[in-house]
Design a protein around this nucleic acid. Structure first.
Ligand SMILES: [Mn+2]
Ligand SMILES: [Mn+2]
Ligand SMILES: [Mn+2]
Ligand SMILES: [Mn+2]
Lengths: 219, 219
DNA sequence: AACATTTTTTAGACTAACCTAAATATTCTT
DNA sequence: AAGAATATTTAGGTTAGTCTAAAAAATGTT
């Protein structure tokens, strides 16, 4: 139906809309997709004629309804394949992204629905991101950033903002995983670094790391 | 490493070498890949510079050692994915080919080895074709064509020459599946049609069908 | 051996997706 | 509100993979 390049652009625009809201700029897309702005302009024109995005010169771009549906189908495939890799093939959560980037372009509705069933209809992927169902609906859980937690309160680690390999490997090394209960002991006013405690250990995380951890509040 | 187009050509040349032996002609490749002879010539030149095939103008083409290894890796992936689809996702044997055509191009050695282990190192795919191991080795079972069987003797259906959708659907309809014990009751001298018997029923198959069934001899 | 047919290659063109460099539009600064 | 800086688009080019039409080589037939 759509080429891999087209699907990658749609997914990228979708992600940027989620993160930044409203219209997405050419340069933002270019940097995320690691390509040149001129290439982005070319593609936006093409997606526009296919009614996947609303694009007006110099005005940024927005997904149309059709574009959003298509993007969500790709996201669904990406996240389901990540679940498969981790749950069935014993990959680690930091190893699956590149492979899922390839698998997300396999075209077969039947395949993806059967895979969904095989995995028992997971609601989130190995990084805590929600998996759209076949109608594009997903459960977006309420999360709190570490820095917005009251000191002394606890939360369950449910998601990461940055799911790049290096960050996930850092969490592995520090023995932090999704589902862990984390208590915020103290926030250093000087540099906003955070002293936290898990069931097994205590550690200090930088402000940067704290910004990338999402917690679900617990009693 | 190699593009999907390159991999498809290598797999095609490999299959044609198996079937016809020796050098493979431009037109044969073109018809199998459903493309034009001129496109094949272009690709053969490219594969030749990459040392994947030995190609001399007007002389046909042969895989080099490198080319054969690459083709076998693609074949391995194709057949393992077919096993996955049938064994784990409950696809029928006539539904998997097109999806495997896409999956065979996913690039990750780790993935394919983990998939192999997950499936318990299958030796044949759902159509009875042998699966190369990670070193390219596979078990080629001795088979007999139906027409070469002695009348009254029996064999186990272990493979099909034609694994196209229509033929497999025909076998489904006639209740014939891999592993079935088949007894050759009679061969009609006039048109070489064959009267066979399975554990559950008797039927007559055309010469054409008979040509496409491989049996393993049994006492 | 000469001619006809078939196969293969070459020549030239097209599209998708990218690129660099230059032009133009927008936004920021004073 | 002008000039500077930045963002975006346009112009023109490249590569992979395809195509059609024409040329050339190989093969078959008498
Ligand atoms: Mn991912
Ligand atoms: Mn993910
Ligand atoms: Mn197949
Ligand atoms: Mn097969």
């Amino acid at each position: 139906m759509y080429s891999q390049a087209e699907e990658n652009y749609l997914k990228c625009i979708y992600a940027l809309e989620m993160e930044h809201g409203e219209e997405v700029s050419t340069n933002l897309i270019a940097s995320k997709i690691k390509t040149k702005a001129s290439s982005v302009t070319d593609m936006l024109k093409k997606l526009s004629t296919k009614d996947l995005v609303a694009y007006k010169k110099y005005q940024g771009v927005k997904l149309t309804e059709r574009g959003r549906e298509t993007a969500l189908r790709v996201v669904r495939k990406h996240r389901l394949w990540e679940c498969f890799l981790v749950q069935k093939l014993d990959f680690k959560w930091d190893e699956v992204h590149e492979i899922a980037e390839q698998l997300e372009h396999i075209e077969s509705d039947l395949l993806i629905d059967k895979l969904d069933a095989f995995l028992r209809f997971p609601k989130t992927d190995p990084h805590g991101d929600p998996i759209p169902d076949k109608h594009g609906r997903m459960i977006i859980s309420e999360t709190v950033k570490v820095l917005d937690m009251k000191i002394g309160s606890s939360g369950i680690l449910t998601g990461v903002r940055d799911s790049s390999g290096p960050f996930l490997k850092y969490l592995n090394k520090k023995n932090l995983a999704l589902g862990d209960k984390i208590k915020v002991i103290d926030i250093e006013p000087y540099d906003q670094s955070v002293h936290i405690e898990t069931r097994t250990h205590r550690l200090v995380i930088s402000n940067n790391v704290a910004e990338n951890l999402y917690l679900r509040n617990v009693k």
